[in-house]
Design a protein around this nucleic acid. Structure first.
Lengths: 166, 166
DNA sequence: AATAAGTAGCTTAGCGCTAAGCTACTTACG
DNA sequence: CGTAAGTAGCTTAGCGCTAAGCTACTTATT
């Protein structure tokens, strides 16, 4: 056993142990930390993307289009599904990104109900820079662990996510 | 090496490898999963608290008061700090919980600027049930891992959180 | 060919948060 | 003792999301 540094979740667990010693708080040791890390890193990512004039949500739209490969085109429906967003939320993000000139909407030639959303040259250039900045931020945070620990952590999280997130 | 199940983050990492093989996506294997787990479990917790008529944010208020021990009293300021919330956000949560009869606000006898927020009997009863339901939900999700893995995961997350979340 | 059912994307109302600014009060200082 | 600076909690405007409902169009059924 190594000495562990103390974190805010340890404090909360101790408080519960004092007032409700009957509770089994082991699951909180995992999920309490996941919630806090998600929030803290979310804030850091928001800051990392700010120089590019986009929010984290907008980054996700551009990144999804970029990852899909040439011609960097998806339908709003596909974007809604991938981004786990309602159609209303998707409309809002697309509006903002289209106004900024980072993507454009055009009619789907095969289905007159639908649209195609395509990255512009400027959108492609911007996302290719921003994705590097985002990964740099995440990599910096991960230096808290050595390579083996990071790999272990990724594996444990994969197992948990695969089972949990239906 | 064991065969790993595939999860959505693996798919995203593969997509990036195809279109941008120069990127080092190892940090994404950790944080991408943390973001997704946080969202998925957050939704599950929201559902777990719904039978008690409270949201996750409102649960956090009641739980913070409960953990503080008798007489279950804190100032709005202390709650804002613990919950990482602006005073405006705190005011809103307290309004709703006070209307529901789960806590009450009273003047601070030592500082006429301030208030004391105290759990009512009903609030105490409710949070003592709800905290059990919440932990049950988290424990159920965690059965994806055996006890040793869960402990390992908690330790790795502690180390990451202690360094990352300033 | 007519019609019912399904689907795509947009609009609107409502919710919970933040940022900024307010009043009321307290503390520190000359 | 008087004034400046600080602090507590609330209010308001604005933001991004969801849920629900809309129109336009497509697909399946007869």
């Amino acid at each position: 056993m190594h000495a562990q540094p103390t974190d805010p979740v340890d404090t909360i667990v101790e408080q519960w142990a004092r007032v409700r010693p009957d509770l089994d708080t082991r699951a909180m040791e995992v999920f309490g930390r996941i919630f806090r890390l998600s929030r803290a890193m979310g804030d850091r990512m928001e800051r990392a993307y700010r120089p590019y004039g986009i929010s984290r949500g907008e980054f996700d739209v551009l990144a999804t289009l970029r990852r899909s490969g040439e011609p960097y085109t998806l339908s709003p429906r596909e974007l809604s599904a991938t981004l786990m967003l309602t159609t209303g939320g998707t409309t809002g993000r697309l509006d903002k990104l289209e106004r900024a000139g980072l993507l454009r909407r055009s009619p789907d030639p095969h289905d007159r109900r639908g649209l195609k959303v395509t990255l512009t040259e400027e959108g492609l250039r911007l996302i290719d820079e921003a994705v590097g900045a985002g990964l740099a931020e995440e990599s910096a945070a991960l230096t808290a662990l050595d390579a083996e620990q990071a790999g272990q952590l990724a594996d444990l999280l994969r197992k948990l996510l695969a089972t949990t997130a239906e």
